[in-house]
Simulated scan of single mutants.
Amino acid sequence: MSPQASPLQTRILSQLQTRFSGAQVVGQRLNEVDIAEWLGVSRTPVREVLRALERQGTLVYEPRRGYEIVQPLDPETGSGADGDELLDERVMREMALGTLKSVISERALLKRFAVPRGFLNSTLRRLMRDQLVEPSPGRGWVFADIGPDALRDGYRFRQIVEPAAILCDDYAVDRKTLDALDRDHAAAIESINAMEQRALFELDARFHRVIAAGAGSRQLDDVIRRQNNIRRVADYISFVRPERIRQSLIEHRGIIAALLDNRRQHAAMLMRLHLEVSADETFAHLNHDLERIRARGSLSSPADSAG
């Protein structure tokens, strides 16, 4: 929570951390109304706490489904050898660098990342839910092949399906949801240099989930989530480029405005252009970012294969 949080918001956060701690809560959903009734408070401070947790990456908001816990609400969860850097980020960086290949034993992963077993298991469960890793019975874990080819294929796929989703029959996104999304984009543009990269990525991913949800297809929702997770791996190794991020958020607002005006053809065209520009920007910097990460020498040597 920010230093400006009210005493009531601080108390609400403390209650949530007590009730929703530990790896077993990952995947559970939180409802603003239910929490307000449980704590005997109004919905407004609860809403502010949930939004703050979303900004820090502990929760993810999905239209029509509410908030999902993606990290336990323990204050210390995720801290490890790299200070404030979450274990998720460290694992994803190494996936993008291609150092987590083949089958890797849990013992080798514990040695590599030097974190408690509980932290590692929580991260592996989240990655497994996101289809980025899967267990190999009796041998360890198999990590998805996330590289330039996968990213390129993902962008190509999204350029086909996301504009088409906007044009499908009975497409509809709740106006209040779009208005709230637009306000959050406006606030992010205003404070772009002060926001953490994780918060910016979550806002970007939320935008694409909201737009896709308008098609009313759970299968499409799952595909967009999967593509967001693949992009997340690349984004975790990227260095923040504020001007491009600001421009991307402005492009998002243009799409939102077109949808609010019920100009779906225009919104679909803007989405296609946005994805084309985003792909060009990603690949213009990807190799350079990878080289800078390697040059820093902050990553350990590749993990041992299962043994």
Rank of each mutant, 00 (worst) to 15 (best):
L127C: 01
F207G: 07
H288K: 14
F119I: 05
D74A: 07
V240W: 09
T44I: 15
L259F: 08
G83W: 13
I237E: 04
V26C: 10
A96G: 11
S105F: 00
L30Q: 03
A188W: 01
E85F: 07
R29T: 10
S136H: 08
A172K: 10
I256V: 14
P135F: 02
V103N: 00
E243A: 10
L220S: 05
Y61Q: 02
Q71F: 06
E196H: 14
A199C: 11
A215Q: 09
V33P: 11
S102C: 02
L97N: 02
D130L: 09
A199H: 11
E94D: 12
I166W: 02
R29Y: 07
A186K: 10
G22H: 00
R158E: 10
G140D: 00
F157W: 13
K111S: 15
L109I: 01
I250C: 11
I237N: 05
S301Q: 14
H252A: 01
P72N: 01
D221Y: 05
D174W: 08
Y61P: 03
R218Q: 10
R90S: 09
S191P: 05
P302N: 04
H208K: 13
R263A: 10
L286S: 02
E32V: 12
E85K: 13
L120G: 07
L167G: 07
L127Q: 00
N228W: 03
D174P: 01
T10K: 15
A295T: 10
I293E: 12
A186H: 12
T123G: 09
L132I: 01
P3Y: 01
R117V: 09
I230C: 05
I160C: 14
N193T: 12
S300I: 05
I245W: 12
P242T: 02
S21V: 03
I35S: 02
L167C: 02
L97R: 02
S305P: 11
H274N: 12
F283W: 07
D280S: 15
R209F: 02
S300H: 14
V70Y: 03
D182T: 12
R47V: 01
L259V: 07
V277P: 04
R19C: 07
K101Y: 03
D145K: 13
R294H: 06
R253E: 05
D84P: 08
R198A: 09
A144P: 06
L97G: 04
A5F: 08
A186V: 13
R11K: 12
I255F: 04
L100P: 04
L290P: 08
A268Q: 04
A23N: 14
I256D: 05
V26A: 10
C168R: 15
